[in-house]
């Protein structure tokens, strides 16, 4: 059996915010990603998506739990060794404008990870840089320019070139397309899909755009208040969402097609503060099918018939399905 490239167990991240209060950003998350697999992570802002992505790469220190990367426990690894590991785990950030040093040329930006991690002569490195630029469809004329002279889509291509420069085993993409225009976004997504085919790199694709996630992911994990409430194969999760939060989240998505009938479940209220988490099931304060037990008991993840894992107390008796109002 193949080993997962990434396996995290019981991972939590808490930030102290003064006055003895603590933000519970990520709470007891279990996830694994197989080689070559793309895991989509969706959730609203404040659900801990980005924090989780950063903790996985040890850009933030986990408060609790373990991270196993490529069979090696990296939770306690000292900083110096983590640096060497970064060759195999790369990240693409949401905002390409601030992810690139404005005083470096695109050529040097793409060459930087190669310089740090791969032992190549200068001419080999130059060749590799140009190969990478060509791979991400960035014309060689752009290589001598500075980031300020490129458009957002071109900058994001440069960021992707940087991320694949060292042939990583895992790439964490934190909202790589959400700051881009629709037509540009399509090109970036296609590039990512091609790169995945070629390099067989595993990807963690963090996004709040459900349409995009559905397109690119093999599996999806839904986060709510720092917890994975449901995870499973993309199609199963989209077709028969089991957790009430997943149902509501998916129904709020608006496909760009007026012929598509949306039957929407509009949630009441807003996401509770991660400083004072609700007791029991974190979703019970907004859940339309919550019962008294939900406020007391923390639900465990259970397998549903369509194959995915969901954490809801009402699944065993079928009470987890929210009745829909037809769209008017």
């Amino acid at each position: 059996m193949t080993q997962p490239v990434l396996k995290i167990r019981n991972l939590s991240k808490r930030f102290p915010v003064g006055g003895g209060r603590v933000v519970h950003a990520v709470n007891c998350v279990d996830l694994s990603i197989m080689p070559g697999e793309t895991l989509g992570m969706v959730g609203e802002s404040g659900s801990g998506k980005s924090t989780l992505g950063r903790v996985i790469l040890r850009l933030l220190e986990p408060s609790e739990g373990s991270i196993e990367f490529d069979g090696q426990d990296i939770t306690q690894l000292p900083k110096g060794q983590i640096r060497r590991l970064r060759r195999d785990m790369q990240m693409v950030f949401q905002d390409p404008w601030s992810a690139l040093n404005p005083r470096m040329r695109i050529r040097d930006l793409i060459a930087e990870p190669i310089k740090l991690h791969v032992d190549l002569s200068r001419s080999e490195r130059d060749d590799r840089t140009e190969d990478l630029a060509r791979r991400v469809n960035l014309g060689s004329t752009y290589l001598n320019r500075y980031p300020a002279n490129l458009s957002g889509g071109q900058l994001q291509r440069a960021c992707i070139a940087r991320a694949i420069a060292t042939d990583p085993k895992l790439i964490v993409l934190d909202e790589p397309t959400s700051s881009l225009d629709l037509s540009v976004r399509a090109g970036i997504l296609e590039l990512l899909a091609e790169i995945r085919e070629e390099t067989k790199a595993a990807m963690l694709f963090i996004s709040h755009d459900l349409g995009t996630v559905r397109m690119i992911s093999d599996r999806i994990a839904v986060l709510y208040l720092g917890e994975v409430v449901e995870q499973g194969q993309t199609e199963a999760l989209f077709e028969t969402p089991a957790h009430p939060y997943t149902q509501a989240l998916l129904s709020a998505h608006l496909p760009a097609d007026p012929a598509f009938k949306v039957s929407r479940l509009v949630l009441e209220g807003e996401v509770p503060s991660p400083i004072a988490l609700p007791t029991g099931c974190k979703f019970h304060t907004r859940c339309p099918v919550a019962i008294a037990r939900c406020a007391r008991e923390v639900p465990q993840a259970i397998q549903v018939p369509s194959g995915q894992q969901a954490s809801c107390l009402r699944i065993p008796n079928g009470g987890n399905i929210i009745q829909r109002k037809e769209d008017v």
Binding site: G153, L182, S183, V184, R185, A186, G187, L189, E190, L191, A193, D209, G211, T212, R214, M215, P255, A256, D257, F260
Partner: peptide, 17 residues
């Protein structure tokens, strides 16, 4: 419209941007 996730087909992006 072709660039929306619902209608998007891989392989067409070059014509879009």
């Amino acid at each position: 419209i072709a660039a929306t996730p619902e209608r998007f087909q891989m392989g067409r992006a070059k014509a879009l941007g």
